[in-house]
């Protein structure tokens, strides 16, 4: 690799001094650069890696679900500040996450400036999964709200909105 050269290339600090052996553990900067160059050459690898990373991010909320379920179960079904706070967190953080999804996946976007449609994008599946996972945790929150009795699902919740019946007859003692 290193042949005799008669000129100094100041652009690269590589000084071909074969006579001096590098100290043990020393890595010449050129070596590093060459290796990096090597990597950057394989763009496809890079993209794959990004997608893989994106999948990690997308699945992360799902991994939290069992833990959250456990916490909800621990907090009980009574309406207290603790259980309400946890449930509210569970409801709002997925929504926030979905809204911020573009930022989260920004670093995994392919560098190419070509506009791609969403479905063609490599991040299409991870994003869908991400949303699904967040919806799962919202569902978990809903289930919790329901078990706390905070969802208007029973007759009693709509009682106040029902109108009284108008009597047709007027009778008096």
């Amino acid at each position: 690799m290193a042949t005799k050269q008669w000129k100094f290339d100041f652009a690269s600090p590589d000084i071909p001094r074969k006579s001096v052996i590098d100290p043990p553990g020393y890595l010449s900067s050129k070596d590093v650069a060459t290796r990096a160059q090597k990597k950057s050459q394989s763009d496809d690898d890079q993209e794959l890696l990004k997608v893989k990373k994106a999948w990690d991010v997308a699945l992360a909320p799902g991994k939290q679900l069992p833990m959250q379920a456990f916490m909800l179960w621990m907090s009980g079904n009574s309406v207290q500040i603790f259980s309400v706070a946890i449930t509210a967190m569970l409801m709002f953080s997925p929504i926030r996450a979905i809204l911020n999804m573009a930022q989260v996946f920004d670093r995994f976007e392919s560098a190419s400036g070509v506009k791609q449609s969403f479905t063609e994008s490599a991040l299409y599946l991870p994003k869908i999964t991400f949303i699904a996972m967040q919806l799962l945790s919202i569902l978990l929150g809903m289930w919790k709200l329901n078990s706390m009795g905070l969802l208007p699902t029973s007759h009693s919740d709509w009682l106040a909105f029902q109108d009284p019946k108008t009597p047709i007859e007027f009778a008096s003692m």
Binding site: G149, S154, H155, S156, D157, L159, A160, Q162, P164
Partner: peptide, 11 residues
Amino acid sequence: SLGRVLGDRGV
């Protein structure tokens, strides 16, 4: 109130 709410939130 038009009804009486029971323990299971029925009316």
